[in-house]
Computed example of a mutant assay.
Amino acid sequence: MLGQYFNWRTLLALVAILIVTGTIFYSNYLAGKIAVEERQKVEQWVEAGRFLIYAPVDADTKLPSLIRNEQKSIPIIETDEKDSIVSYINIDSTKIAADPMYLQKQLKAFKTQNQPIILEISKQPLLINKYYYGHSVLLQQVKYYPMVQLFIVALFIIITIFSLQIRNKSTQNQVWAGMAKETAHQLGTPVSSLQGWVEMLKEEDSSRQIATEIEKDVQRLRLVSDRFGKIGSTPQLEQHDVVIQVEEMVEYIRKRATGKVHLDVKKNAAEMSAKISPPLFDWVIENLLKNALDAMDGKGNIIVDMHNEERSIILDVSDTGKGIASQNVNRVFKPGFTTKKRGWGLGLSLSKRIIEQYHKGQLYVKHSEPGKGTTFRIVLKK
């Protein structure tokens, strides 16, 4: 049971999560250490300034001056006891020139980042200087590095998943094409043989009627072979009247349906022309009509409603059958899904492939309600 969840993909994901988590913790640890060191540097900078102001004339000021001059990484704003800005260092002067309120904004930001260092100048009257400081570039980089790394890892995972999906889809398409070509190839030999036997039967008067019926079935087999052959390769689309194609398939299904099933074709134009592959398009209509028949258990109504729009032709195939449960609506086009006791669950999947990949149209469930029926919609571009 657990074995199906623990595979190489799961292991890689866990390793990636551990690496990112470890990096985040370590980066926070480093950021904490750097923050402590930066506060010490600011304190030393303030003390060095105090010494330079109050030191005796003969005092050695070399070290305090070095501390003051070498501090070039931490931005500092000096204020008085009323938080009025007195001076500043390591802040971009061009931004201050462009925005008069820039220093005030920086001061507000520094107050949220660190506690100020207070330097008492005198007690009576009370005069103090406050030194607010922000994060250095190094500290900001250490803090934001884990976020950048997390983004890169997430992007890598997304690209990997997307690549796997494309590869799986490509493999599935190759399987479909290979299966279709092999089926067409396997059907080709017996169909040709049967055609020869039909011609021999026609030569005898007593067998002509039988030969005529057998020929119909042979032609049907040849059509099936032709359809599978076109599935395995890119079909040639030609301009055809869709109304004629639909009406012929409805008539074909009507002959094979019971007398309690009523098939009707509705249309808002006598002719609707689009680029299609007739054998494949007929196959789609046949699949939808057969599904409708199966859903009605021998009685009900099937309506093919055709609309000629400005840029497209819309076909709605509706039945009064059992309908599709809401949880299955998004699964009906997946290969292998079927609610029938017999069948491979490939009809609707093949139909969607034919309409959307070969004809650049759409095939979807427009509406379905259990116990009342289903409507499939085909949209063909003109």
Results as ranks from 00 to 15, higher is better:
Leu139His: 05
Val153Lys: 03
His185Ser: 13
Phe162Met: 09
Leu223Ile: 04
Ser136His: 03
Ile152Gln: 03
Gly196Val: 10
Leu127Glu: 07
Ile161Asn: 04
Arg167Cys: 03
Lys143Tyr: 07
Tyr132Thr: 01
Ile231Ala: 06
Gln219Thr: 07
Thr189Tyr: 15
Met147Glu: 01
Phe162Cys: 03
Leu139Cys: 02
Leu155Val: 09
Leu194Trp: 10
Leu138Gly: 01
Pro190Glu: 08
Ile128Ser: 10
Leu221Pro: 00
Lys143Ser: 03
Phe228Trp: 05
Met200Asn: 10
Tyr145Leu: 13
Trp176His: 04
Ile157Glu: 00
Gln141Trp: 09
Ile158Met: 08
Gln141Cys: 02
Val148Phe: 08
Ser170Gln: 12
Ile166Thr: 04
Thr189Lys: 15
Ile231Gly: 02
Phe228His: 03
Ile158Asp: 00
Thr160Cys: 06
Leu201Val: 02
Asn173Tyr: 11
Met179Arg: 10
Tyr144Leu: 11
Ser225Phe: 03
Gln149Met: 13
Gln174Glu: 12
Val224Glu: 03
Tyr131Val: 05
Thr171Leu: 14
Ala184Phe: 05
Ala211Val: 01
Gln219Phe: 12
Ser206Phe: 13
Ile210Gly: 00
Leu201Ser: 06
Thr212Pro: 00
Tyr144Thr: 07
Glu203Met: 15
Tyr145Gln: 06
Val191Gln: 06
Pro146Asn: 02
Tyr132Ile: 04
Gln209Tyr: 07
Ile210Val: 12
Pro235Gln: 05
Trp197Thr: 13
Lys216Val: 09
Val218Leu: 07
Gln165Arg: 12
Arg167Asn: 02
Thr160His: 06
Val153Asp: 01
Tyr133His: 00
Trp197Tyr: 12
Leu187Lys: 05
Gln209Gly: 07
Gln186Ile: 14
Pro146Lys: 03
Arg220Met: 12
Thr189Ile: 15
Arg208Lys: 15
Glu203Asp: 11
Pro190Asp: 07
Ala184Met: 06
Ser193Asn: 07
Ser136Pro: 01
Thr183Cys: 05
Gly229Ile: 05
Phe151Lys: 04
Pro235Leu: 11
Lys130Glu: 02
Leu150Asp: 00
Thr171Gln: 10
Ile158Thr: 06
Tyr132Ala: 04
Val153Phe: 12
Asp217Pro: 00
Gln209Phe: 14
Glu213Cys: 01
Gly188Ser: 14
Gly229Asn: 14
